[in-house]
Amino acid sequence: MVLIVALVAASFLSLAVGSADISLESVWRAIVAYDAADPEHIAIIDKRLPRTVVGIAVGAALGLAGAVAQGLTRNPIADPGLLGISPGAALAVVVGIVAFGVTNPAGYLWFAFAGACIASALVWFIASRGRDGATPVKLTLAGAAIGAATTSLVSGLLIARAEALDTMRFWQVGALAGRGFDVLGPIAPFLIVGVVAALFLGRPLNLLALGDDTAAGLGLNVGRTRLLVGAILVVLVGTATAVAGPISFLALVVPHAVRRFTGPDYRWILPYSAPAAAAILLFADVAARIVARPSELQVGIVVAVVGAPVFIALIRRGRAAGL
């Protein structure tokens, strides 16, 4: 209930705060009794509401993705970047900018999604070689190697093409500005399927956390389950990254914070992580609009600035939960 209240409060603040602040009373009237002749109502419904919905969707997807990634790899610091998914999306966006001249979020949406899928498939292919198959350690190492390689390729392409650098630098830090239903709509079915499927992964992730031998002894098909969980992770990260860019630390920090209240049971971690991450992302987006007025920061910068010290504090206090 606290998380739901926080998410509702963050949503109302997201609708009220901007280059020109609007009262919460006007926000409520715009929602329940929209007046097409009122400029404040137009700003709320046509401009800020789509951005808020995108923030909720992206935040929920990243919160779930972080919990799923850590459960899949049994690695408490696993996140989409470590597994090579976000770097793969970034490389595909750069290719779209350089080779096809794509310059807007709606245009490079599918490039980012395809890049995330291809990078994940490559990580899985490398990690699954050998007798043991795709073990957590091999997945993590393969993801780190693919991530490093794709990041180097991105840097090389951006240095060679200055116009690509100008376009890419705004996407690469993660942003909700300029993201509306035109960006979210085409990929919303994938996002909805990924979120719903992830919420049913509690029991498989709990069994994987016990180790492959124990999970297999309890009747779990480890290889098939890991492949299914990896596919859901790719959908979550691919859609979120395609819409808003690679937003760092959110998927890493939120599952750790949630474990302080839920314990290690993924049947609770997953449903708690979604609203927690969505609320944090909206609060960060509101802060990004305030600290640099009349302009605004990219929300990815605010999340990183806040998330890094929070994660360090969790580690120093010994609260970075093990798996």
Results as ranks from 00 to 15, higher is better:
Leu207Val: 09
Leu207His: 07
Leu208Ile: 13
Leu208Gln: 13
Asp212Gln: 07
Asp212Phe: 12
Asp212Ser: 11
Asp213Arg: 14
Asp213Tyr: 09
Thr214Asp: 06
Ala215Pro: 10
Gly217Asp: 06
Asn221Lys: 11
Val222Asn: 09
Val222Ser: 10
Arg224Thr: 07
Val229Cys: 05
Gly230Met: 11
Gly230Lys: 02
Gly230Arg: 03
Ala231Cys: 15
Leu233Ala: 11
Leu233Glu: 12
Val235Glu: 02
Leu236Asn: 07
Gly238Val: 00
Thr239Ala: 15
Thr239Cys: 15
Ala240Leu: 10
Thr241Leu: 00
Ala244Asn: 08
Ala244Lys: 10
Gly245His: 08
Gly245Ser: 09
Pro246Cys: 10
Leu252Pro: 02
His256Thr: 03
Ala257Trp: 06
Ala257Arg: 04
Val258Arg: 03
Val258Ile: 09
Arg260Cys: 11
Phe261Met: 06
Gly263Pro: 08
Asp265Thr: 09
Tyr266Phe: 15
Arg267Gln: 05
Leu270Asp: 10
Pro271Ser: 08
Pro271Phe: 11
Tyr272Ala: 14
Ala274Asp: 00
Pro275Trp: 06
Ala277Pro: 05
Ala277Tyr: 08
Ala279Ile: 06
Ala279Arg: 08
Ile280Gln: 03
Ile280Met: 13
Phe283Ser: 00
Val286Lys: 03
Val286Cys: 04
Val286Thr: 06
Ala287Asp: 08
Arg289Val: 01
Arg289Gly: 01
Ile290Ser: 07
Ile290Cys: 09
Ile290Tyr: 11
Val291Ile: 15
Val291Arg: 14
Ala292Leu: 09
Arg293Ser: 15
Arg293Lys: 15
Ser295Phe: 14
Ser295Lys: 12
Glu296Gly: 00
Glu296Lys: 01
Leu297Gln: 06
Leu297Trp: 07
Leu297Ser: 04
Gln298Leu: 06
Val299Thr: 13
Gly300Ala: 05
Ile301Arg: 03
Val305Tyr: 15
Val305Asp: 14
Val306Thr: 11
Val306Asp: 05
Gly307Phe: 01
Pro309Gly: 00
Val310Asn: 12
Val310Gly: 10
Val310Arg: 12
Phe311Asn: 04
Ile312Cys: 09
Ile312Ala: 13
Leu314Ala: 03
Leu314His: 05
Arg317Pro: 03
